[in-house]
Simulated assay, not measured.
Amino acid sequence: MIFGDVALADAEGAILAHSKALDRGRLKKGTRLSADDVARLREAGIATVVAARLEPGDLTEDEAAAAIGAALAGAGVRAGAAATGRVNLFAEPAGLFLPDRGVVDALNAIDPGITLATLAEHAPVGAGQMVATVKIIPLAVPGAAVDRAVRLVADRAAFRLAPFAARRLALIQTELPGVKPSVLDKTRRATEARLALSGSTIGEEIRCAHDTAALKDALERLGPADITLVFGASAVIDAGDVIPAAIVAAGGAVDHLGMPVDPGNLLLLGRLEGRPVLGAPGCARSPKENGFDWVLNRLLADLAVSGEDIRRMGVGGLLMEIASRPQPREALPKKSETQGAADVG
């Protein structure tokens, strides 16, 4: 591509770099100048325009974006139409977005004019939500570079969508003296809101005392469920605590306790009769994102979660604080302190 000032005599077929307001309408940036367009520019007293002239093998920004977008589509992702050098990609079903960083980085390294931006790994998305965008920076790029990008993603997908499946969950909440029923009701509502994106539901709920024997009995009384969620009246801080002990006593197993995500540290991952059991951290009573969401969403998308997976969640695992936590990471300043700071400055 040759970019710069172009005399009108040579401008037919060139791509206009900047919009031009004329007496008879407007020529938009990116317009492939026709003979009539050149005549209108001449009538307006314009002698030269800033434009791009294609060299052999070049593709316009829309042609390049459309080719790369079409190659990226598939595995639950569709491509939109090309416009102004951009193609957006959208989730077809709701699910978890799974990009391959190596492929995305390799595509972005092919040519400075070709870019691909995506959502973060394991981002939960609704049907129709944008998950990635291809943007061609200049008005045209070499066709050879576009071919390399297309071949790259043909050999190894840059991303895919793991669709959510509607699951039936069981919910157990343990109680201690002084725990208000309204707290447990709020926890159920927050959980139902978390499940809405996947179409999953709570099929059964049991509330029982916060002791090993009562929780063991509740686990054994549950009907069929794809996933069991246990919210304890007291946080799990040891493998011998109430929730892990009850799971083991009921014939299950604890796969992992704790996670390097905050809020969400005190999560338990276990199994009972071959199905996942999650011991929820206290922060999961809030609707705000925490480590519990990261594990639950993977299970709802039918992705296996191991202890090793959880141990690798530390980078990016420092999430926004939840103000309602009993013990926030940093002590909140007292009202008198904040007032004093405001008075100072």
Rank of each mutant, 00 (worst) to 15 (best):
L161K: 02
V153H: 06
A162W: 00
L296K: 05
G85Q: 00
P260I: 11
A64C: 11
G282Y: 12
G126C: 07
A341E: 14
L59H: 05
C208D: 01
T118E: 01
V254M: 00
D105A: 12
E220N: 09
F97H: 02
I68K: 00
D343M: 09
G282T: 14
N297P: 07
T338H: 01
I15Q: 01
A64S: 08
A83M: 07
R275G: 04
W294P: 05
A7C: 09
A44H: 05
E273A: 11
R311P: 08
L319H: 07
I46E: 04
V104R: 02
G45F: 14
A65Q: 13
L318S: 11
A158T: 14
A304H: 08
D241A: 11
P181R: 10
H210A: 05
A249R: 11
K180M: 04
P112D: 13
S306K: 06
A190R: 03
D238S: 11
F90D: 10
L222F: 00
R329V: 15
P93A: 02
G13V: 15
L267N: 05
V38Q: 00
E308M: 09
T118S: 00
E273Y: 07
R189M: 12
T84G: 09
V146E: 05
A14E: 06
G128T: 15
R298A: 07
G30F: 00
V344C: 04
I15F: 12
A235G: 10
I243W: 06
G258P: 13
A21R: 15
G252C: 14
R40M: 13
A127N: 01
G270Y: 13
T115W: 12
L59N: 04
M320D: 09
L303A: 04
V146D: 00
E205V: 15
A166C: 00
R26E: 14
E92N: 03
G126T: 15
L195I: 03
